[in-house]
Simulated scan of single mutants.
Amino acid sequence: MAFSADELRVLRRALAIALHPTPLPDEDVQDCLRLAGAVDEAVSEAGRLRAFLLADLARYREALPGSVNGYLELLQDAVAAGYDPRPDDLAALRALRGKPVAAALLARCQVLAERSVRARLAGRAVAVTAPAPRGRLLALPGGRAADREPERPKAPVSPGRPQAPGERPMPKPSEVFPPRRRPAPPPGERAAG
C-alpha cells in the first residue's frame, strides 16, 4: 500500500499522538478520519479485486484447453501471492502436464496442497488467500482530495449470482478470443489435376 505525502504527514502525526496522548485540534481529527477511510477503501478494493481475480481464474479453468496460456499465467500469479490451489486446479494441471510450464506448476501446487491438507489434519487453521492484484497501486485517494465523496466501483459479478435484468453475463475467454481458423485456399488450388 502506498501513501501520499499528505497521508504520511497525517500518519506520522497520529502515531506521535498515540505515543504521547494530547488533545487534538478538530482539523487533525478530521485528517485522521479521512486517512482511516482511505485505508479502509483500499483494503475493500483489494478484496473486491481478489474476488474478481479468483472468478477470472475459474473462468479460464472452465475454458481449458483453449485458454491454457492465460490460465497458467493467472495461476502462477495466484500461487506466488499465496493462493491455495483447489482440487480443480490440480486436475486441470494434470491434464496439461505435457507443457513444461504446467508440469512445473503442477509439482509446486501438489506440494502446497499437501502442506495445506497436513495443516488441516493437524488441526491448524489454514488461511486461504486470494491472488494479489497484478497491477501496482500507484496512488490512494486521501489527503486534501479526500474531502469529496469517492465514487464506488461496481462489484464484479460472481459466478453463482443470478444476473439482474438487462445485465450482460461475463463472457468466457473462448468467446472473447475464438480459436483461429485457417484461411480457405483459393478455388484454383483446390482442384487436383
Rank of each mutant, 00 (worst) to 15 (best):
A95D: 11
G82C: 09
G82H: 07
V117S: 14
L121H: 10
P85W: 00
A103L: 10
L75P: 02
A125V: 13
V126W: 05
D84Y: 11
A113R: 09
R115G: 04
C109E: 00
G82A: 02
A127G: 09
A125F: 15
L74S: 08
A95L: 03
R94W: 06
A80R: 07
D89Y: 05
Y83N: 03
R115I: 06
Y83D: 08
G82I: 04
A78W: 00
Q76L: 13
D88T: 11
A92H: 04
R120D: 08
L90Q: 02
R108H: 10
V79Y: 01
L106S: 00
V111G: 09
R97V: 04
A119S: 12
T129F: 11
V111M: 13
D77H: 12
P87W: 08
L75M: 10
A113G: 01
G70T: 06
L90N: 02
A127C: 09
N69V: 15
S116N: 12
A119C: 04
R94N: 10
R124P: 00
A122N: 10
A125E: 13
R124N: 13
L112I: 14
A92K: 02
Y71H: 06
L72E: 00
Q110V: 08
A92V: 02
A127K: 14
G82Q: 01
V79C: 04
L72V: 00
N69T: 15
E114H: 12
A78N: 05
A125S: 14
V128H: 13
V101F: 12
A122M: 08
R120W: 15
Y71V: 06
L121C: 04
A125W: 10
L74C: 00
L74I: 00
D77C: 10
D77I: 09
R124G: 09
V79T: 04
L121I: 09
